[in-house]
Amino acid sequence: MFRFAVRRVLLAVLTLFAVSVATFSLFYLGPADPASTMCGQRVCDPATHERIVEALGMNQPVVGQYADYVRGVFVGRQIGSGDTAIDCPAPCLGVSFRTREPVTDILKRTYPVTLSIVSGALVVYLLIGVSLGMLSAIKRGSFLDRISVGFSLTFASMQIYFLGLLLTFFLVWQTGLLPRPQYISPLESVGGWISGMLLPWITLGLINSAVYARLSRAQMLETLSEDYIRTARAKGLPIRRVYMRHAFRAAVTPLVTIAGLDLGTQLGGVVITESTFTLQGTGRAAVQAIFQQNLPIIMATVLVAAVLIIAMNVIVDMLYAVIDPRVRLG
């Protein structure tokens, strides 16, 4: 187990290095000219351009900039020079090219929003999706099964922005059943947090639950045809015991993997959901940064997403070994 962990950490570091180099390179290899974007004039005059470039630290060679960046993450650095310099303590992820706000502050501001959306939706889609899927597998061919298949097809084909706007229109504006979607920190008001997040949770939750309903139905059907289920019945176990203890645990294993990886990706930023409900989450910040050619924010969001995905990969592998004793990590 120890060797497994060490190997995975080393691999993670290597991956992060590769990701950061790639992001940096792609940015500079592309037609990047953030200085012009931030100029404010249609055609930037050379003096202003030069001044902005210097302030951003972009007059240094790319490798140097990268080295500075890495150093900043571990030790902290000074950004820019002269009287416009900013002190950036570790972990320094740079400052926004546009507003000069430290990126760590931006993340601290936007990340809780994304986390709130994802965690709530996770509960919704796992609960609804998995139980619906399992039930329809158990009662295959029945009315419930047909409804759930229809449900899955409908919602899996829907787009978040479509369903989100539709639900907002009906549930918020027309009938007033739900409050306006917004982010209120749970530290301020738990009630406000929940009511503001309900609509995103329902939307993202319903759409994803369709996918998980399909998946868990297929997994459960396959598991139910296994020999050990027949043995369990032959022992005289009550059918509920067979379903819950024997079938469920076996069927759920691949779902854990998929859900974990899904979660890792979503934690990196649920851009469409954030945009649909105009919530200032990390995903939205990342996309805006791309349009604004705001490299520090891009780097930070990419790296954070990479860290989360890698971490979820490791967690999912370990969970698999916990559930399935045939898998041994060595």
């Binding site: 050990y228 043995t231 019945r233 032959a234 022992k235 005289g236 024997h246 399935d324 004793p325």
Partner: peptide
């Protein structure tokens, strides 16, 4: 019938690896 299964009548199957729960 379920109550008698496993108690009055029992069955063993062909492939014990797949007939026993792996977990």
């Amino acid at each position: 019938v379920r109550r008698r299964r496993g108690r009055d009548m029992a069955m063993i199957f062909q492939d014990p690896l797949s007939a026993l729960h792996p977990f």
